[in-house]
Design a binder for these strands. Sequence first.
RNA 1: GGGUGCUUAGCUCAGUCGGUAGAGCGUCGCCUUUACACGGCGUAGGUCGGGGGUUCGAGCCCCUCAGCACCCA
Length: 975
Amino acid sequence: MDKTFEPRDVEARWRDRWEQTGCYAPSGKGEPYSIMIPPPNVTGTLHMGHAFQHTVMDALTRHARMSGKDTLWQPGTDHAGIATQMVVERNLKLAGEPARLELGREKFVEKVWEWKQYSAGTIGGQIRRMGSSVDWSREAFTMDPSYSKAVIEHFVRLYDAGLIYRGKRLVNWDPVLLTAISDLEVVSEEENGKLWHFRYPLANGAKTADGKDYIVVATTRPETMLGDTAVAVHPDDERYAHLVGKSVLLPLTNRGIPIVADDYVDREFGTGCVKITPAHDFNDYALGQRHGLPIFNIFTKTATIISSANDSPIVDEIRRRAEVRPGVKSVTMWTSVYDYTLIPEKYRGLDRFVARRQIVADLEALGLVDKIDDHKLKVPRGDRSGAVVEPYLTDQWFVDLTRETRHDGQPGPGGLTAITRPAIDAVESGRIRFVPDNWKTTYFQWLHNIQDWCISRQLWWGHRIPAWFDDAGNVYVGRDEAEVRIKHGLAADLSLRQDEDVFDTWFSSDIWPMATLGWPEQTEALKKWYPSSVLVTGFDIIFFWVARMVMMGQYFQNDVPFREVYITGLVRDPEGNKMSKSKGNVLDPLDVVDGIALEDLVKKRTTGLMKPETAPKIEAKTRKDYPQGIAAVGVDALRFTFAALATQGRDIRFDAGRAAGYRNFCNKIWNAARYVLMSCEDQDCGRDGKLPVELSDADRWIISKLQKLEAEAAEHFAGYRFDLLSTALYQFIWNEYCDWYLELSKPALQQGSAAQQRGTRRTLLRVLEAALRLLHPLMPFITEEVWQRIAPLAGITGDTIMLQVYPRAEPAKIDEAAEADIEWLKAFILGVRQIRGEMNIAPGKPLPLLLQEGSAEDIARLARMRNAIEFLARVETPRVLEAGDSAPQSATALLGTARLLVPMAGLIDKDAELARLGKQIAKLETDVMKTQSRIDNPNFGKAPANVQDQARQHLAKLQAELQILQRQSTDIAAL
RNA sequence: GGGUGCUUAGCUCAGUCGGUAGAGCGUCGCCUUUACACGGCGUAGGUCGGGGGUUCGAGCCCCUCAGCACCCA
């Protein structure tokens, strides 16, 4: 074996072999266990967050597999409609190729497919390199033909059940990407703006209470005034009560619009008068609905002012279905107006922000601007484009999630009953458990305030909506055009055109746990692995994805899609910022694995930026965070780092130093294995059991400790405590096995009998072999590599550690006596080391040593473990002092009630020993004081008896120790 | 405005049933001892965000204040 662990070689050796020999595929035996990968977007490459979650999933998968379960980790990728479409559009631009609209739909979609092949390949490569044991034979993609069929199927079934409707509604419109987006894709942040106060002249000679012939409305969006269809005041507002029912003359347009009363109006805000633009504001829309106001759309889909009859999607007058909804005061006939001639010519065709400036200027010229205040407001922007989102009236498809009964009046449950409530119930009833538990409140909160889900997107990349229109505007839904014609009895020559739009991506990934297993067919795989065992994902997609999978799983399979949801934290940069390409603080997990020079990292982070001007800042931060670049740590160390940082419900700051520390841990394991091999190869390791084997205290101690570790590992897997798991493994391997057991094995192998040597070798091998299996789910590569060499010597056969059984504790092997013996031994050796270390005595120099006031047990232990003590403490044979013996002046260490004495003659400086004792005495004195005052508390008698006893015993012990040290100090001082 | 977290050693974080605080990294000293310098041995470092309460006893439970983060409206 090499002297240092070289991860690259080892990883390369195993990852292909595991995959090719079918180790990743389900065994077909045992209890089913499955994890569905949250399909990464085919937008590029995996980031640290993926690597983290994949580490967790792979650990769970390997653990389940080793525990004998029929384990499936289902891989795949998501087409990620809008995100991927944007990536491809940008690539076309960078390559100087024709833009999307120039190419046309068919050619463009071909380009996206090319990109998908590339991106999925990159992602697959990354997943493979990380050692993730997914079943590649089942790899899925949300746009695969079979998957697409399932997407269509679930839409048609929901539609047929009256749970999907098409409606003209205000949606969040992205005027750059030209598509509707869902509420979840809008990010609102506070920005500095203005609050304009405009004077709207009263019509027909009406006057305000204080005699003015105008009222003042306040607005943050002056340009929308062209679409105003009312002014609203609060019904209880005395200032305006007499004006309700009267009209104002809308400036610039000279349209008369009514003054209405509605308690939506906040009397305290602005002037208490609000201009109402139902077509361009969600609140105004609702108000307009209540008051039967016309909806006057003034924008084209690129958010310029309409200028011709073809600009708006609203092409004819519509009549709102009479519908009673909560909050609707009256049912009114409701009319939408489209008439570009109502807009003064000078504004037609202007961009919304240009129009704003023009309108303010024109009102100013007319003396109608009352005042302009600075104002902070929440500006809604599309999370992809960053453009200000426009509430916009368009035809879209919705999933009903809010109605008790069907939207169309047919008998049957509505979405609230059929979809939303069962999803709430799945978690409320405990059939799905969130880990950590408190995420369920987030889940409930969203579901209790849910809106209908707009599932159509005006994109080209995605599943095209299976709806067809005839020339009369009738809509027919079916699995394909042929089915539609049959289902609705349409003539073969009736011309039908399919809806141009595609589904929201989440309206395809919502069936991921079912469709990847073959749904709608009730396949064997579906029967076996649905529900999946656990979903591992981030809290940021609880709404987008988790809740929606629960909805669809409950609806279609009448069962939850997963039994547990383990919510991971987000991986952040060293300062705690979210990692994002635009911030330039992303890390490629493989750059941590392979290492990267500072200059390369800077280059990687500053090329291809959306905003090239941010490059200097990004460069500075990168140089600050990683002044030496990043050292290669290998896959195992990176995985272990993620596990160690995976504390419950907390985001994790990635710390390259920590990863380097775990690389050292790998090296430690490697060298421990080297030592074990050197000690055991070509030796009698007690394998055949024919010759006598004798286990020492140390052997029984480490075996006992191993049992406790195994029990702990089981517990931590069950509780998803990968942080505690990794700490326990690290402690055991480094601080018990390497620091103590390996050292103890040295004297045993040098000086022990044949039977003792056999016992030691067997224990060295068996404990290491078990530790490797325990560690394997977190560190697959190094454990496999080492196991291949160790296992045969331990008498274990098998092709791979992957398919070995995960160690389980055997309580019978717990040996408290041996543990106590070794704890005593450690204390003994530490006492001597402490003196040696603090007195600066060379480590190799053998010391004389006396044991004073040792109990019978101390003396027996000393006799039994003398070899180990002499070897590890580097002492001459310790001499036991009898009761009457006088001791020379010595440096002292306490060992329970006994004392270890290192004679000072020629070794130890008087002052140094006094200083050392002084420190220990000071510490003991404060401890004594603390404990004493606790006992002296007059009410301490109320504490349970055992606690009192414990405290008194503790005090007595401290006092005894203190006394010994004080006496010692006085004696030495007197020299 | 509503909700969820967080604040513990220089840094990053554990801390289970309330019993008197731990780890890794870093610091400082000694050591090229035959598994490992990606190492060994030793050492220092804490008013557990502030205040109040419950309790024999609070990092942990309750109240309150401050700061930070995120989610929803």
